[in-house]
Design a protein around this nucleic acid. Structure first.
Lengths: 217, 217
DNA sequence: CATGATTTTTAGCCATGCCTATAATTTTGT
DNA sequence: ACAAAATTATAGGCATGGCTAAAAATCATG
């Protein structure tokens, strides 16, 4: 009832979309998780009954203590799997996200612990996102979206967030991943694409995608 | 529809219980997989419709080409995970079975392949059972159940099959696992327990459990 | 402050997978 | 050959997690 794959995905989605204090709109959850708003609403109702989330009508949802703890755990499992898949099994950087999404719901606590130890207690996933300590909420790094840089500014890519396979594939093809240095060369008007330089390469990237690439100046 | 966790479990169960040519009784499937015969029957009907199994009424079920291929794949994933869990992550030998049962349904093909390569193409799981090559059916080793030995006979433990957590825990506690040598010292009448020597240790083991320990003389 | 957009709820429906209870059928053992 | 045991089928239910369609409530903006 409380640890089905569905409920876990909802909790994780709410955690990932929640930037800070403000609640997350149900429509956003529905869209990201690919269900209709009605379905999301029903599920949100159930999760609220279970005490995992708080629902302020017409505002959105936020996680309770319990919900936050569980969502954080799922995120932890997800990111640990990604590390194993990429670093040890040689699974593709972009593909690892989907694979971990499946595994995260099928992971016993003992496996999570063993995985963490085997990996040497890593602090970030291959896409740069922090791996929370067990029980602790994630503390986000000090970053800003690539889309907020100005022309000529240089920055280091910290993480891709929220992750999504199509996005990761696109970024991988263009050499955009954590640790690399980028410089914005041009910003098209009307929410148009950014032209950025990554190493020797020059790449054009849409505004929406750029807002998911977080950098430190 | 065709790759739900449930259907996978049914297919795997049928493969595990099927010793060779004869079909497997539905009641056996139901018992092993912990559902009522009625539920198993309904599921068997559906799987037959999907062309995964053949159902000969009052005889039992057997896998079709397609079903065999899929079931074999699941077994392959299961046993590869067990190897990773035990050999690399240090998960308990007995616990690894349940953990792998969960993971096997959440494993993409790319992950299976990567896992196999990382592990160096292992041929058996930690409980001694063969890891099938992709697409190939398993070919069982030449073994006989420990319960068929006579007093004084010595043999090498090859595998535990079918696996089950309670059984594995019991066996682990008594030092009974693949590669070890056993000698039968006493056989109680009326399907009673066997007294066996394993190394320096003397252990009493039930007939049912002994029938799941497969040895080579 | 009214109207249009958004959010929420209700109603009705579907598939999956499980259950119990009961009945019909086939197999098997004496 | 017949009764007991095993197998299969039918009927009716339940929970989860989806869906569409349509109505109701609230928000936001001109």
């Amino acid at each position: 009832m409380i640890r089905s794959e569905s409920t876990e995905m909802y909790l994780k989605t709410i955690l990932e979309l929640g930037t800070g204090k403000e609640p997350v709109a149900i429509s956003q959850v529905a869209e990201r998780w690919g269900v209709t708003p009605v379905s999301a609403n029903e599920m949100i109702k159930r999760l609220a009954e279970y005490g995992m989330i708080r629902h302020e009508p017409y505002k959105g949802v936020s996680l309770t203590e319990t919900g936050l703890r569980q969502a954080t755990n799922i995120l932890r499992r997800h990111r640990l799997w990604e590390r194993l898949l990429v670093d040890h099994l040689g699974v593709d950087w972009a593909e690892s996200h989907d694979a971990a999404c499946q595994l995260e719901h099928a992971t016993a606590e003992a496996v999570t612990t063993a995985l963490d130890a085997f990996l040497g207690h890593p602090t970030t996933c291959p896409h740069g996102n922090p791996i929370p300590d067990p029980g602790q909420p994630v503390n986000e790094a000090e970053t800003r979206p690539l889309s907020t840089l100005e022309i000529g500014q240089q920055a280091t890519i910290i993480c891709i967030h929220p992750e999504e396979t199509a996005l990761l594939n696109y970024l991988a093809e263009h050499g955009i991943y954590p640790q690399r240095t980028v410089e914005v060369e041009e910003i098209a008007p009307l929410d148009g694409p950014l032209t950025v330089r990554v190493g020797e390469q020059r790449t054009v990237i849409g505004r929406e995608a750029a807002s998911r690439v977080h950098v430190a100046v």
